[in-house]
Design a protein around this nucleic acid. Sequence first.
DNA 1: ATGTCC
Length: 474
Amino acid sequence: MSKNENYYRRVDLPAGELHVFAKDELFEAMGARTLEMANNNLQIPDIRYMSYTPDAHVGVGTCIGTTAVWETERAFVSPSIVGSDIGCGMRVHVTNLKAEDLKDVKLRRKLVKAIEKRLPVENHARGYFSDIRLEDALRKGLHGLPGKYVPDAYTPRKATSLTHVECSRFRFDESWLDRIPEQLWHRSHRQLGTLGGGNHFVEIQAVDIDEGNRRIAEQWGLQDGQVIVMIHSGSRSWGGAVNQYCGSEVAKTMRLLGLGTADPKLAFAPLDSEAGQAYANLMYSALNFAVVNRHLIGYAIRDAFKDTLGAPFEMRTLYDLMHNYAWEERHGDASYFVHRKGATRSLPAGHPDNPAPYASTGHPALIPGSMGTSSYLMVGSPEGARNYYSICHGAGRVRSRNATKQLVTVDEFASSLRIGQDDEIVVNHKGLESIIDESPQAYKDVDQIIESVVGAGLATVVAKCRPMATVKGV
DNA sequence: ATGTCC
């Protein structure tokens, strides 16, 4: 780590201050368009704080990597600063396996096949959980699931399904659900327990503990070489339904109140307006969907492991958390409405908002890398308060899907996954052509992102997680 | 991201 490196700067834009947490070369690579977008977002009335994490890049209306904060009493809510996949986030399960148990590439292939059998990954796929009512999941989150799906039977010594999550149930005014048209409801039926496409994935990884945080790693129950399962998915078409219905409501309100910026795609409304309330309440239903969806993906993977390995198998939940959402948080003595779009909350030890099991360590912050590269388990630092405890959400895209398809060959992609070697990262796609836009060259180097977060003092590394097998949608 | 244009 170079001593003269800067990891933070304040950028004074015409509309206000943008705080950027990134090492110099990452900041310089962000480009003028990211600053233009910040300047538009800073024109939303009464905004109190806005920042970019080092993985920030251009998105629709608002950059992915944004944290934007209002005081709750005069808050605006913005579908653009939540992002299209409401509730998108990460989940990690800790197995009782060691990496050497999965050393045989044939076994990893068998495992990937077993996962595909229980986890629909193709476009338009229906989920297998036909006895779960969509309404119950939307209203009550994990508490709306039948008992058999809260699989603590797999974690006999410790119940972790409901306690080791950022939030097991988002409460909201459920009468807003009636506003969603029947046709949009229909799309979401039987979609719980499906992976989705794009950057969503399930990955089997091996843990490498960082010496500096070995004590915390042990308190989290992690050991070197331990196999974990990392899940990245969101609210599928239900989030889309919420955006579709609320998008037009928010647009109406903006016209009525004469609100807007240079970017017509940047949508926002006062939180206490009719449209703001519609969006906030229905957004919470989508957060419930996303948490339940990742939970059920975990449930399916447990069964796949059990089918493949037999033997006593455990897969307790380490944590589930989001990186596309907005909600109320207390900071100091005041209440704030915090938006995170491609940003992860990372609370330090002792912070009162940690779930009970992580009160004394801080909760795990789950940061995925790109395909073929490592992922990270982080923990927040007290100094993270200066950024409302937001850190990065992953590597961050560096070139478009089309540009990546132009640039990267199938052979290059295959070699980055070490296809054909003993330590091959097994992928569920026979041909890599269809997911070449997810190759590592589409993304920034996650190690540089992590170095920036650590260098800025926002969080520290607890473990680096090496990929062994990956399941992707299309 | 998304039954990615019913």
